[in-house]
Structure formats: C-alpha cells, structure tokens
C-alpha cells in the first residue's frame, strides 16, 4: 500500500472505516461495504425529484393532520373529539408538562424541519442550479434528526390506543388520521430513495462546477 490513490478517489465506509476506491455507481445499482454490509451508495434515476415531491407531499399531509379532527370517541351519545394538537397537549397539566414540548417536537416539529431541510438541500440541484448557501448544514441537520422524527412510531401508538379504547366506546377515525397514515408511508418511501453518501457526493460536485 505504498502507493495510495489521491484522496478524491477514495471513500471510507462511515460505519466501519473500510477504505474503497471511489467508483461511479450506475443508477439503480447499490454499492455496499464488503465488511459490514452498510449501504455506501445507491443512486436512483430521478431520485432527487421524487424525494422533493415526497417531502412536499409529507408537509401537506402534516398540515392536514394538524387541522382536521384526528379521532372521535362516542360513549352513550356523548362525543369527544381529539385533534393531533390535543394529543400533543395531553401532558400539559401538572408535572408532566415538559413532555408537551417533547411530544410537539417528536410528532410535528422535527418531521416538518426534516422535510424542509431536505427540500432546501435538493430543490436547487433538481433544477440544475448550484446548491443554496448552507445546504450542507441543512442536510447534516436533516440526517441528525432522522431518529428523532417519530411520526411512524406515533401511528403505531395510535393503533395500540385504538384497541385499548375500542372495548369501552365507539370510536371513529377522522380525516387527520388518514392524512397521518399517508404521511408515514410517504416518509418511509422518501427515506428509502435517499442515499446519504450519494447526496453528499452530488452536493460536492454541484458546488464546484
């Protein structure tokens, strides 16, 4: 290994540090690490446009989920309706108040911030322009927030809660519930299309040309 290629031609696996020669990976193909099997690059044709569209759809669905009724409970002719914001506010009284902030962040604010940051990073490049300033910080933030945007965990929580209550009362799902289900599907699709190293590479080359 006396003669190592130039740094630009190398890539290190972020998970296990294995060193590889950078090759152009064809769209549709996936390059993964030989040792730890982490996906290194997975470019997809028109991935950028698709990710932006999905992120936009997710934002619209989130807005719908916030403003439409989420769930409605009916016992002996008396109905109680809860919106997504009511769910967030559930902890607001007494000692559990700090959880309100956390709930709002995990379910609404962080997912929205992530979608926004991803659109900010990719939109100019999808139109063939230079990335906007601070695109790197935006994308780094989007990646750091990934585990903390818990929309899909929340929807499973809703399912569990529904079963718990189903025996006691008649329950109906509002439009916001379906908007939120759509949001989860769109988020999962978007994250599957997006390959972190590919985005960084594209950002880097687009910045220079």
């Amino acid at each position: 290994m006396a003669q190592l290629p130039a740094l630009d031609e190398l890539i290190a696996c972020p998970s296990c540090d294995a060193l590889y020669l950078e090759r152009d990976v064809a769209p549709g193909e996936t390059a993964s690490c030989l040792r730890c099997h982490a996906v290194l690059e997975a470019p997809r044709r028109t991935a950028m446009t698709r990710i932006i569209m999905l992120a936009l759809a997710a934002i619209i669905l989130m807005v719908a989920a916030i403003f439409f009724p989420f769930l409605e409970l009916e016992v002996a002719g008396r109905a109680h309706r809860a919106s997504l914001l009511d769910t967030v506010r559930a902890f607001s009284s007494g000692l559990t108040a700090p959880l309100t902030v956390a709930m709002a962040a995990l379910i609404v604010i962080l997912p929205l911030t992530r979608f926004g940051a991803i659109i900010y990073t990719l939109a100019p490049m999808a139109f063939g322009n230079h990335p906007w300033p601070h695109a790197q910080s935006a994308f780094r933030m989007a990646e750091a927030l990934r585990p903390w945007a818990m929309a899909e965990v929340f929807i499973v929580g809703v399912a569990v809660a529904l079963v718990k209550v189903a025996g006691l009362a008649h329950l109906s799902l509002g439009p916001a519930f379906w908007a939120f289900v759509g949001l989860v599907i769109v988020t999962v699709l978007k994250d599957n299309f997006m390959s972190r190293l590919t985005v960084w590479k594209t950002l880097d080359t687009r910045r220079k040309f």
């Binding site: 290994m1 290190a12 540090d17 294995a18 060193l19 590479k201």
Partner: peptide
C-alpha cells in the same frame, strides 16, 4: 467497489494513515 488495499484483509482508512468522515465517507 473494490478495496483499495488489494489485500485479502480489508484496509481501513486508519490503517492507511488517513481519516474517514462518518457523515459523508470522504
């Protein structure tokens, strides 16, 4: 992608005297 070391064992950035970025692989 092939391992830059061409050795049977995987060459890491650290072993090659280099530093890899955990965010973007550079």
């Amino acid at each position: 992608m092939e391992n830059a070391g061409h050795a049977p064992q995987i060459l890491t950035a650290k072993a090659a005297g280099l530093v890899g970025c955990v965010q973007c692989g550079r």
